[in-house]
Design a protein around this nucleic acid. Structure first.
Lengths: 340, 340
DNA sequence: ATGAAAGCGCTAACAT
DNA sequence: ATGTTAGCGCTTTCAT
């Protein structure tokens, strides 16, 4: 294979079909009034030459490129992928293509990407990242609309689509209460991490609303299995009585499951476990499989793309838009064959 | 923020600077001979107007878009991401942007993407996917060069960059032999899966070269932790004597580690474990941390991008190019504080 | 129903 | 050193 065949131009097609370029253009785009015979003759010529219209040249006219840029604040990872897939999906349906730019947590690199995207005259930009924490806008003012997905902008006028982590947390706690747990502990990521803060606060709040308190102050650590295991050690050593742990993410939950089993506590009979992220690989191979909160990242991406398209078409939706999370129940809270 | 400021054209810049467009173009591109004063005046005008050259219009002239397409055969996932990142990295350095297209295992969708990319006049295309198995070329003949990364093309004339899975497997076995293991079992993914076949065959071969045989016929199953656990049950129940398991991927290895521990076998003292993929999240939180084979996917992506750039510049490298895998030693084969 | 011509934003060859 | 002009591939009036 490799490089063969030159790109055919519409002039080539017109010549082959024996018409003018104007006519060829009309024929191919279904515009103007042409004899049916001419239309098919042109189309046949185009087919024969493998003609694909030069989108760049066309954009020169239309002012639109049917192209959007997607910038990751940090790096392309576990959280940005689903967002990316969702966006790609929604945009592809609208015949748009996506330029992917990896920011790598480097503001210079990011600015470079913004410049490049503008130079390529993208119709709009989606910004995403690994964390939900708000970030500074990618530029004070831009000639195209911007939508932040998952991550959000510190400017409240910017359009941001974010998961409702507080609502998700409430669902997790409500589920634990529903399966009869009253002594709920909370183990999560770094104290300075936005998601850790939000989830911890929401958990405490929801538990309080039920007239209860967390079994122990939230344990902040790392987003890792190792920390999940350690935290159980801490809880047990501290003499905390608990019949459930709401974990900040699935890895922590999984570490906790392993440590609990090693300590002779049964999951979910003695201790029920809820994770966060609903990361299939983790949740499903956990022993037992893990109940978790799903942020519906793909939906977030799709939503962001749709709002960007709307903004491109002149109907922006400024502001922060929170999308609901979903509880996915597995055996770490409800034993098999004995649904709650 | 949002939509403000129109895109400035070079004519706008020229007008503001009080020169002709030709002069403005030269000033901005550092061509021709201009008075330094003029050059700076034009640049200042461009800066003031936030001018970004219209890349599409420029391409009309140069015939190049400095843009490449990246198509995933299946879906954007754990294997394609690093490839993507590597490619993005290498291409970004060359001022090129990447169009990302998600194939979703759908040939129609894929063809649509190919058409779109050609229409956008990408300078080249990178094809990648989740499996190393060779696939049919994306098109019999194309006006731009194509490079397959990770996945390969069935056409031996196509340029494909693939990991040397056989070599990686040999490294794994050699490492196990080096730490004194002689009864090596092999547990891997589905029998019909290309990687499973290649790795199983290479393992058997390398063991044979050492004058040994596998402790049992390879166990084919799924690429999952669940299967990793089950397989240990099978080995133990079958009375197989083994002091090592070479696993087809990290998830299987991790499942095996858990099952071995549950069965009272120590890792690595009684049974040494080697995985494949070196998936950090899995390998590092495994108990004990997992020795694994790394395919260097990012390097693969970078390499593919470089070869694509070379091909675009007229120096193609047809054929299948295998890249070495690397052994990453952790405690599942070598106990801490007692390096081999 | 079809063709001719202008113009989208830019570059490069050619004048001045 | 700077300006003028043609033309890249395409769409779209406006003639015919």
């Amino acid at each position: 294979m490799g490089t063969t065949e030159r790109h055919a131009t519409i002039a080539d097609v017109a010549a082959l079909a024996g018409v003018s370029v104007g006519t060829a253009s009309k024929a191919l785009n279904g515009r103007g009034s042409l004899r049916e015979e001419t239309r098919t003759r042109v189309k046949e010529a185009a087919r024969q030459l493998n003609f694909e219209v030069n989108a760049g040249a066309r954009s020169l006219h239309s002012g639109r490129t049917y192209t959007v840029g997607m910038i990751t604040t940090d790096t392309i990872g576990r959280f940005s992928i689903p967002v990316l897939i969702g966006a790609e999906d929604a945009l592809g349906a609208g015949q748009m293509s996506v330029f992917l730019c990896d920011g790598r947590d480097d503001p210079i690199r990011e600015q470079y990407h913004v410049k490049t995207l503008l130079s390529r005259r993208v119709d709009g930009i989606i910004v995403t990242g690994r964390r939900t924490q708000a970030r500074a806008p990618i530029a004070p003012v831009l000639p195209v609309p911007v939508v932040y997905a998952f991550i959000s902008s510190t400017d409240p006028e910017d359009c941001s689509i974010v998961p409702d982590e507080e609502g998700g947390t409430r669902k997790a706690i409500e589920h634990l209460l529903a399966v009869g747990r009253t002594r709920i502990a909370h183990v999560t990521g770094p104290e300075h991490h936005h998601s850790a803060q939000v989830r911890a606060a929401a958990a405490a709040e929801r538990v309080a609303e039920a007239g209860l308190a967390l079994a122990a102050p939230p344990l902040f650590g790392a987003w890792s299995e190792v920390w999940g295991r350690q935290s159980v050690g801490i809880l047990l050593a501290g003499g905390t009585e608990f019949d459930a742990i709401y974990c900040g993410n699935d890895q922590i939950a999984r570490g906790a499951a392993d440590a609990l089993r090693a300590a002779g506590r049964r999951v979910p009979e003695d201790v029920a476990l809820v994770g966060f992220d609903n990361w299939d690989v983790m949740a499903e191979s956990c022993q037992p499989p893990l109940t978790s909160i799903d942020m519906n990242l793909e939906g977030l991406g799709r939503s962001a793309a749709e709002m960007l398209l709307a903004a491109i078409n002149g109907a922006p939706s400024p502001g922060r838009h929170a999308r609901p999370c979903q509880l996915v129940v597995r055996e770490s809270t409800v034993p098999p064959h004995r649904p709650a």
